[in-house]
């Protein structure tokens, strides 16, 4: 049986509680230092399956700018951030673009679309 204590810095609010989560065989068995439900839920997810929103740019043709900002529609597993950004490096789209347009559907097969963060008119 493996018992691990992992320090977590909460980002739920400006107080920024720092606490520890105790894992046994990959399951949360104890935690301390988090003073509210938001913090406890964050800490539990952060040790088991941390997720992050991904924002980057893709190449854009035919607009006033050369780049289109894009964002994941939902958070993706933290460990896949680089895979996601690298997959988007090869993507090129053409104006006009509308905010929310799907730029890369189901990126990395994790069930999350990458969408346009803004609209861009054709130049």
């Amino acid at each position: 049986m493996s018992r691990v204590t992992q320090p977590i810095q909460c980002i739920g609010c400006p107080i920024g509680c720092g606490g520890d989560v105790v894992l046994e065989d990959g399951k949360v068995v104890d935690m301390h230092g988090f003073n509210c439900d938001v913090g406890q839920a964050y800490a539990a997810e952060e040790v088991i399956a941390p997720k992050r929103m991904v924002t980057t740019t893709v190449r854009l043709k035919g607009g006033a700018l050369a780049l289109l900002p894009v964002v994941s529609a939902k958070p993706i597993p933290k460990g896949r951030i680089f895979d996601c950004v690298n997959a988007l490096r090869a993507v090129e789209v053409a104006a006009p673009i509308k905010a929310g347009d799907v730029i890369l559907a189901d990126a990395l097969g994790v069930g999350v679309d990458i969408v346009a963060a803004r609209s861009v008119a054709a130049a």
Binding site: T55, P69, V71, A99, A117, R118, S119
Partner: peptide, 8 residues
């Protein structure tokens, strides 16, 4: 939202 999304 993203910055461009907020601006939009």
């Amino acid at each position: 939202l993203t910055g461009p999304g907020y601006a939009q």
